[in-house]
Design a protein around this nucleic acid. Structure first.
Length: 296
DNA sequence: GATTCGTGGTC
DNA sequence: TGACCAAGAAT
């Protein structure tokens, strides 16, 4: 694959310089933020905009400031405190990860990418991000923002592939500065550029620090080629019904009889199927007499 | 590799 | 208004 002739050192300097001026002040970016705080922020940020993460993160950290504090709580309390951040299995896995930290890592967030990757709810992105942002390890951090920025600046494409490819990982590794300190600065800065300027729709190229270096911009910002990207179905899906059921169980601070859940969707069979799947996932605990609650 | 999994904001 | 999308992970 031909690599772009774009001068990477200029790209690094421009993006990191822009970040110093325009990067957001977020609580998990403060120098005194604990690895646990960074870990929680990364899990909450999976598929959830940071604007919605920040208030939830503050409440969470005040209530459970350490892995041990969360591990000592009931998993259902984590699910309830998760609120409407979405994908509530993340709350359960965060609780499981805290338990694993207590059992295997002396109550600390592990500091190596391999140990991080072994934790529930931690994939390649989150392991790299925590290793980099919490421990200064120059891992290749590739999220949706990085993928989009690199697709545009280096490959003249409006959007990256639907799923992360090996070629993209190689490109991201190639694009990252070699020196450790610079690499860490690059990782957070290029993500932020994708989040604030090089956004998916309506990119603000006039405000971009590397507009004159960007291959996509130079090519006249050609539209996406290939098959249209599949949206995320929602209306009438199990996800929607699961969301309704879980919201009711969060709001009810006691167990609930199944008769009060039947109207979560028009199709009663779907309601029961979703309730069963929530139990299978460990998000809901079945009790006697057809009653349900968040897991104790 | 393709699917599934919440929720809310934006245009 | 409805499609798109957001610091992805698990199966």
């Amino acid at each position: 694959m031909p690599l772009s002739s774009l001068p990477l050192h200029a790209l690094h300097a421009r993006v990191t310089g822009w970040y110093r001026e325009a990067g957001r002040e977020l609580p998990w970016r403060e120098p005194d933020c604990s690895p646990w705080g960074i870990f929680v922020s990364e899990v909450m940020a999976q598929q959830t905009p940071l604007s919605r993460v920040e208030p939830a993160w503050r409440e969470w950290m005040q209530r459970w400031p350490t892995p041990a504090a969360l591990a000592a709580a009931a998993p259902g309390e984590a699910v309830r405190a998760w609120g409407r951040l979405g994908y509530p299995r993340r709350a359960l896995r965060l609780h499981e990860a805290a338990t694993a930290m207590v059992q295997r890592h002396a109550g600390q967030v592990p500091a190596t990418p391999e140990e991080l990757l072994a934790l529930p709810g931690v994939g390649g992105y989150t392991a790299a991000a925590v290793a980099c942002f919490a421990f200064g390890i120059p891992e290749v951090v590739v999220d949706t923002n990085v993928r989009r920025v690199l697709a545009r600046t280096l490959e003249a494409k409006e959007y990256p592939a639907p799923a992360l490819t090996r070629a993209e990982r190689d490109l991201a590794a190639h694009a990252m500065p070699a020196e450790r300190h610079t690499a860490n600065a690059w990782n957070v800065a290029v993500m932020e550029l994708g989040a604030l300027v090089c956004v998916a729709r309506g990119p603000r190229c006039e405000a971009c620090p590397v507009a004159d270096l960007c291959a996509w911009n130079a090519a006249g910002r050609p539209a996406h080629e290939g098959p249209p990207r599949r949206g995320q179905a929602w209306r009438g899906t199990d996800r929607q019904v699961r969301g309704v059921l879980l919201q009711r169980l969060r709001d009810a601070h006691a167990d609930v009889h199944v008769d009060l859940l039947h109207d979560a969707a028009a199709d009663r069979a779907q309601v029961m199927r979703c309730l069963d799947s929530l139990v299978t996932d460990g998000l809901v605990e079945p009790l006697a007499d057809d009653r349900f609650r968040l897991p104790a």
